[in-house]
Design a protein around this nucleic acid. Structure first.
Length: 208
DNA sequence: ACGGAGATCTTCT
DNA sequence: GAAGATCTCCGTT
C-alpha cells in the first residue's frame, strides 16, 4: 500500500476560493477511539477578509476567530449558535484572514463509530452538514488551531482522487442573511460535487 | 414536503 | 438587545 499524501502547507497558501475547489475529493482524517474516522470532502465554502461581509475575517480579531490570521493549513474550529462546532481550514499567507468551511463529507472509514455518534439517524444525515460532520467525526473546539499538515496533530487532510471540473457545481453560500449579497456568479464561494447524496442542501447552482 | 421555534455562546450595535 | 457560516423537533399541508 502506498503511503497517503498529507496535503502540504503550500496547498493552503492560496486564495480561499481556489483551496475550496481543490479540497473537493480530499480526505479528512481523525483517528478516534482506536479507529480511523475519515470522509471524502464533497462540499466547501470560502471565506475571506475585510471585504467579505459574511466572514469572521471581516471582524476584529477575537479569542474565537484568531486562527484565521495564522499560518495556512491550520484548523479554525468555532462554536455556532452556542451548540455546534464548525471546522474550517485556514488559507492564504499569515496576516490575511481567510478560511474554507468544510460543509459535508462522504463517510469512508470508521462507519460504526460515526453511526454511534449520530444516534440511529439515517446514513445520509451522518455527515451532510458542517455541524453534523463535526458530530460524526468527533471534531470539537479541542482541535482549534491544530496544524492539519501534520499527522502528529491527530487531525489532517490527505490527497484523494481529484474531482474533475465536469462534476463540480458552484453557488452562493448557505445561511447568508439578507445583509450579505453574494456576487457568486462572478466569484464562486460554495463548491460541491454534483449529485453527491451527502451535499448538505440544494440551492442555486451552476454546473458544467 | 414544508415551516417555525428553540437551544445557547460569541460578538456586535 | 439582537443576530448568527446550524440542527432537530413538532406542527400543518
Amino acid at each position: 500500500m502506498i503511503a497517503p499524501i498529507v496535503l502540504p502547507r503550500a496547498f493552503y497558501n492560496r486564495r480561499a476560493t481556489l483551496v475550496a475547489r481543490d479540497l473537493l475529493g480530499a480526505i479528512l482524517v481523525h483517528p478516534f477511539a482506536g479507529q480511523r474516522l475519515s470522509g471524502r470532502i464533497v462540499e466547501t465554502e470560502a471565506y475571506t477578509g475585510h471585504d467579505d461581509l459574511a466572514s469572521h475575517g471581516r471582524q476584529k480579531r477575537t479569542p474565537r476567530n484568531f486562527p484565521m490570521w495564522g499560518d495556512p493549513g491550520h484548523a479554525y474550529v468555532y462554536l455556532i449558535y452556542g451548540r455546534y462546532w464548525l471546522l474550517n481550514v485556514v488559507c492564504e499567507p499569515a496576516g490575511h484572514p481567510a478560511a474554507v468551511l468544510i460543509r459535508a463529507v462522504e463517510p469512508l472509514d470508521g462507519e460504526d463509530v460515526m453511526a454511534a455518534n449520530r444516534a440511529g439517524r439515517p446514513r445520509r444525515e451522518w455527515t451532510s452538514g458542517p455541524g453534523r460532520l463535526a458530530l460524526a467525526l468527533d471534531i470539537t473546539g479541542e482541535h482549534n488551531s491544530l496544524d492539519l499538515t501534520r499527522t502528529e496533530s491527530g487531525l489532517w487532510i490527505e490527497a484523494g482522487e481529484p474531482v474533475p471540473d465536469g462534476v463540480v457545481c458552484t453557488g452562493p453560500r448557505i445561511g447568508m442573511g439578507p445583509r450579505v449579497l453574494e456576487p457568486w456568479f462572478s466569484m464562486p464561494w460554495r463548491w460541491w460535487v454534483g449529485g453527491n447524496p451527502y451535499v448538505s442542501r440544494k440551492g442555486l447552482a451552476t454546473c458544467k
